[in-house]
């Protein structure tokens, strides 16, 4: 069966995108990436004030995957745009996850600033993947601004609460002509599968994998759940009913 994920005219091998934060080590992160089969990973940019013994993350990322810089830490459009330009100038390509967060308690994104940043960066040729609150009007604005996908949150970052925004995400899937990638809050494989069963084009997870007791096997578990959820969606699940519908024939031959 032909079921390809295309983002910005590129064929993406896996519908599971993986963040690289919070892993116990880069070596374990590397093995989790391999186990996940992911084609797109996110990285972040941080200030360095003095030397440290930390290893270079780039030495641990497979060569055949897309590295997408996250603008995390940006609170405004200008800051996000600047991070994107730095990533490109530093040789890390055109894929940008726009994450603009003015709020430290819930880490909820600022849709208005994100739309502005999307417009600026899409014009500069970036492949823009905006992380947003699931809002239909804003998702359409992102489409108009040239976004390559829309990445609505399932629940606050790192909360592991699952697809709490499910009804709104479903509306985006139905109404927006871009890949909808559920990002944030996906704490367990069942959450990932749920998002995919709804019809999401892909799922991005990080904390749920990275903080597991065994991140490598958890990465594989997530990848399997994403695939299972996708297959469910394209197979067309049966309808939900309030009463029972027998799955075996009930013709009575024991009673007349």
């Amino acid at each position: 069966m032909q079921d390809e994920l295309i983002i910005a005219n590129q064929k993406i091998r896996s519908r599971f995108l993986l963040g690289t934060g919070k892993f116990p080590s880069y070596e374990i992160m590397k093995r989790a990436i391999e186990a996940s089969g992911t084609h797109i990973v996110t990285v972040a940019l941080r200030r360095v004030d003095k030397g440290s013994a930390d290893e270079n993350i780039m030495d641990f990322l497979p060569k055949d995957i897309i590295i997408m810089t996250n603008t995390s830490g940006a609170r405004t459009t200008d800051e996000a745009v600047r991070i994107a330009r730095i990533a490109r100038a530093a040789g890390y390509g055109d894929w940008i996850k726009i994450e603009i967060i003015p709020d430290n308690k819930y880490l909820l994104p600022d849709n208005a600033e994100t739309i502005k940043a999307t417009e600026i960066l899409a014009k500069e040729g970036f492949i823009v993947m905006p992380y947003v609150n699931p809002d239909l009007a804003d998702a359409k604005r992102l489409y108009d601004a040239g976004a390559a996908s829309v990445m609505p949150l399932g629940a606050p970052i790192g909360s592991n609460k699952g697809v709490t925004t499910r009804e709104l995400v479903k509306i985006l899937i139905n109404e927006v002509n871009l890949p909808i990638i559920v990002d944030a809050g996906i704490g367990k494989p069942s959450h990932a599968s749920e998002a995919m069963e709804l019809g999401a084009a892909a799922v991005l997870a990080n904390t749920g994998v990275a903080v597991a007791a065994d991140p490598v096997s958890m990465a594989r578990s997530f990848a399997m759940a994403v695939e299972a959820g996708r297959l469910c969606y394209i197979s067309g699940p049966g309808r939900i009913s309030d009463t029972a519908e027998a799955s075996s024939p009930l013709t009575g031959f024991l009673r007349s």
């Binding site: 934060g21 990285v43 972040a44 360095v48 995390s72 530093a90």
Partner: peptide
């Protein structure tokens, strides 16, 4: 000063008064 300087030019770039310098590194992130 808001421009990326390639590592090959670091030795030749003398820092001036009021310059703005950012030293950045790619790290794990979601």
């Amino acid at each position: 000063n808001e421009t990326i300087i390639k590592s090959s030019s670091w030795k030749a770039t003398i820092i001036q008064e009021d310059d703005r310098l950012e030293i950045l590194s790619f790290v794990g992130g979601g």
